[in-house]
C-alpha cells in the first residue's frame, strides 16, 4: 500500500471522526448531567459566562442551555458519523466548533489531554482541507500533528525526570492508589513493591523521553506506536482514560508518515 501524505490525511480524518463519535456518544449517554436538574445545570453555569459581552452570552445560552446542548451533541455525533465515510471541510469545521463549545460547557475541558489532542488534530485537518491541493500546506499539517504527538510524550517525560518522587517510584504509587477505580488485591500488592515501581517509573520516563526517536524511520516508528498503544491501554485499565486511546490513535498516522522524512 502506498502511504502517501493524502492517504495519511485520510486515515487521520477517519480516526479522529471515530474519536469524536465516541466522545459525543458518551456525552449523549450522560445528558442528564447537563439537564436543568443535573449537576452541570446551565442555570448555575451561565453566571460563569457573564465575563463575555451580552450578545455573546445570548449566543452561548442559545447553544449551551438544555435541551439545545443535546442537539449540539447530536450534530457533533452526526458530523463524525458522516466523516467516517465522506470527506468535506464543512464536516471538519462542524466537529471542531462543536468540540470547542462542548469543552466550554464543561468549564474549559471535559477530559483534559484528550480534548487538547482532539483540538490539535481537528484544527490541522481543517487547514489541510481548506488548502486541498497545496501539498506544502497539507504536509505542514501532518508535521504539526506529528510534532504535537511527540511533544505530548517528550514533555511529559521531561517533567517527570525532574521529579525525585518519579525517579523513586513514589509518584507512580500515589497515582495508582488514587485511581477512580477499585484496585484488585493483586494490584494493591504490586503497588506496594518498591523495586517494581522504580522499574515501572523508569520504563515510563525512558519511553516518553525516547519518543522523538520514532521519527528515525518507519520501522522504529511502528515499534513506538505499538508501545504507545499498549501504554494507552494500560492507562484505560488504570485510570479509565479511554478517550486518550482514540485521540492519540488518530494522530499516529501523521507521525508514521513524517517518520519517513528523516529516513529519506
Amino acid at each position: 500500500m502506498d502511504f502517501s501524505f493524502s492517504n495519511a490525511l485520510l486515515l487521520v480524518e477517519r480516526l479522529i471522526a471515530l474519536a469524536v463519535l465516541v466522545q459525543a456518544g458518551e456525552l449523549l449517554i450522560l445528558r442528564n448531567s447537563v439537564s436543568n436538574e443535573g449537576v452541570w445545570s446551565w442555570e448555575v453555569l451561565r453566571r460563569e459566562f457573564e465575563i463575555f459581552s451580552k450578545p455573546t452570552q445570548r449566543l452561548l445560552s442559545a447553544v449551551l442551555a438544555y435541551p439545545n446542548f443535546v442537539f449540539l451533541l447530536l450534530v457533533q455525533f452526526g458530523s463524525a458519523l458522516v466523516t467516517l465515510f465522506i470527506s468535506h471541510p464543512a464536516l471538519i469545521l462542524l466537529m471542531l466548533v462543536c468540540h470547542v463549545l462542548v469543552c466550554l460547557r464543561w468549564r474549559g475541558v471535559f477530559n483534559g489531554g484528550s480534548d487538547y489532542m482532539t483540538t490539535v488534530v481537528l484544527a490541522a485537518l481543517l487547514i489541510a482541507q481548506l488548502f486541498q491541493g497545496n501539498e506544502l500546506v497539507e504536509k505542514g499539517c501532518l508535521i504539526y500533528i506529528a510534532i504535537q504527538t511527540i511533544s505530548s510524550f517528550f514533555i511529559a517525560g521531561v517533567v517527570k525526570i525532574g521529579r525525585n518522587n518519579w525517579r523513586t517510584g513514589a509518584a507512580l504509587r500515589g497515582f495508582l492508589r488514587s485511581s477512580v477505580y477499585q484496585n484488585p488485591a493483586a494490584l494493591d500488592k504490586l503497588v506496594n513493591r518498591s523495586q517494581l515501581l522504580i522499574y515501572a517509573s523508569w520504563t515510563v520516563i525512558i519511553f516518553e523521553l525516547l519518543f522523538p526517536l520514532s521519527l528515525l524511520n518507519q520501522t522504529v516508528c511502528l515499534a513506538f506506536i505499538s508501545l504507545a498503544l499498549l501504554f494507552h491501554l494500560a492507562n484505560v485499565y488504570m485510570f479509565g482514560l479511554n478517550r486518550f486511546l482514540y485521540a492519540w490513535g488518530a494522530a499516529y498516522p501523521a507521525l508514521y508518515y513524517c517518520s519517513g522524512f528523516v529516513g529519506t
Binding site: 458518551e26 477499585q182 479509565g240 479511554n242 478517550r243
Partner: peptide, 26 residues
Amino acid sequence: LKPLERKFSSVLLNPGGNRLLAYYGL
C-alpha cells in the same frame, strides 16, 4: 464518590468513568 469497578467495555465506551473523572475535576 465511590470508586468504580473496572469493565472491559470501558475501552470502547466509558461514560461512567469519565463522569467520575469530571466530578473529581470539579
